[in-house]
Computed example of a mutant assay.
Amino acid sequence: MSPTSTLFSAELRAASAEAHQGAESQRYVCALVAGDLDRAGYAALVMQHHVIYEALEGAAEAMRHDPVAGPFVDDALTRLPALAADLEFLLGADWRRRIEPTPATVSYAGRLRAVGADSPERFVAHHYTRYLGDLSGGLHIGRSLARHHGLTGDAGAAFYRFDRITDPKAYKDAYRARLDDLPLDEAGRAALRDEVLVAYRHNTEVLAALSGLVPTAGAAA
């Protein structure tokens, strides 16, 4: 690589910076972090996450031995057991029949299943967008939720804890190094870059669909 070359991970970060900011500034996310949602309002997001990660982690199993996508599949990232525990805490033992995915969530999960079936580079785009976000801003969200809702131990916000990753920064650095070393031609890299924006669009649409749960000014949270 020449001294003036840009690392692929840096290209991805720059290309998605605006979309990332758009997702973080969604009304629902601001209310979530500020503690303005009641538990039902928070539980609605956990429901959407379960549907999304069920599709993502199903795709990960299909890609586990793929030469391009396989190196990114890591059981330390798996979120479904934590989401199930959070939903049981928040909704009760019958949580599975109470899940209500929004149309935006159904669309997102459908996209994850589609790329997980036949596009390793597009799968990596979704994997990168979700899990590196979880290991970055997601950790902050988890701390805010625990504080505002009195969630202690593993109850209610287990999704935001990665017990098998002791150093998130080192993990993210190693992950980005794998992105930089991906054996893709320019067409493959372009597909991955494009799909990162698709992933952010889907995520933003899911968050926007939950905005109606944010209390209006002067209303009780």
Score class of each variant (00 low, 15 high):
Tyr131Arg: 05
Ala191His: 05
Asp86Ala: 01
Leu7Asn: 13
Ser136Val: 04
Tyr28Leu: 06
His50Ala: 12
Arg161Ala: 14
Glu186Gln: 11
Met47Ala: 11
Ala114Thr: 10
His49Ser: 15
Ala59Asn: 01
Phe159Cys: 09
Arg178His: 10
Thr204Phe: 01
Leu145Ile: 14
Ala60Cys: 04
Glu121Asp: 11
Glu195Gln: 10
Ala209Arg: 07
His148Leu: 03
His202Ile: 08
Trp95Met: 03
Asp173Ser: 14
Tyr131Gly: 07
Ala85Cys: 07
Ala187Cys: 07
Gly188Lys: 00
Ala199Pro: 03
Phe162Glu: 09
His20Val: 00
Ala208Ser: 12
Pro215Ser: 03
Arg39Ile: 12
Leu87Ile: 05
Ser5Met: 14
Ala158Phe: 02
Tyr42Thr: 07
Val73Ile: 15
Gly138Phe: 03
Asp180Phe: 03
Asp94Gly: 14
Ala15His: 10
Glu18Ser: 14
Thr102Lys: 09
Leu7Thr: 12
Leu80Asn: 14
Thr102Trp: 08
Val29Cys: 12
Gly153Asn: 02
Val115Cys: 03
His127Trp: 09
Leu197Gln: 11
Glu54Tyr: 13
Ala191Val: 07
Glu100Asp: 15
Arg178Val: 08
Arg189Leu: 01
Pro67Cys: 00
Val206Gln: 04
Arg122Cys: 05
Lys172Phe: 06
Tyr200Lys: 02
Leu90Thr: 00
Leu112Arg: 01
Gly150Gln: 08
Met63Arg: 02
Ala43Lys: 00
Ala85Glu: 12
Asn203Ser: 10
Glu54Asp: 13
Leu80Asp: 12
Pro101Ser: 08
Leu7Trp: 13
Gln48Ser: 12
Tyr53Pro: 10
Asp94Tyr: 07
Leu91Ala: 08
Leu90Val: 01
Val68Thr: 03
Arg97Ser: 15
Asp167Val: 05
Asp194Met: 08
Asp185Met: 07
His65Trp: 13
Glu54Met: 13
Val206Ile: 07
Glu121Lys: 06
Lys169Ser: 13
Gln21Met: 10
His49Asn: 15
Thr6Pro: 10
Phe162Leu: 10
Ser25Cys: 12
His127Leu: 08
Pro120Ile: 00
Pro67Tyr: 00
His50Cys: 11
Pro3Tyr: 13
Leu91Pro: 03
Leu132Arg: 04
Leu210Asn: 02
Asp134Ser: 06
Thr105Glu: 08
His202Leu: 12
Tyr160Ala: 11
Asp94Val: 11
Asp36Val: 05
Thr129Trp: 09
Asp36Thr: 09
Ala109Val: 06
Glu186Gly: 02
